[in-house]
């Protein structure tokens, strides 16, 4: 491996996007799993309705 190539590989660490958390393959799967997302759809809607109800006086 040349010197240039090894530098390119090593820039992955300490780059801006190295430190934030990234989703695992399991998380990504559930994000697009239709059955799971149907339940999330119901759950998020209920939460949003609670926010709406709490916001109207």
């Amino acid at each position: 491996m040349s010197e240039t190539e090894s530098k390119i590989i090593n820039t992955v660490a300490y780059e801006q996007d190295y430190f934030p958390p990234k989703p695992t393959s399991t998380t990504k799967f559930f994000r697009t799993c239709k059955i799971w997302q149907f339940f999330r759809f119901v759950s998020i809607n209920l939460k949003m309705l609670k926010v709406v109800a709490a916001s109207h006086h």
């Binding site: 989703p23 559930f30 994000r31 697009t32 239709k34 997302q37 149907f38 999330r40 759809f41 759950s43 998020i44 809607n45 939460k47 949003m48 609670k50 926010v51 709490a54």
Partner: peptide, 17 residues
């Protein structure tokens, strides 16, 4: 903030909403 009413998530469900 009221943490019961403050949330965030990524997924297809939000897209439908």
């Amino acid at each position: 903030r009221d943490q019961k009413l403050t949330f965030g998530e990524v997924g297809l469900a939000g897209h439908w909403i």
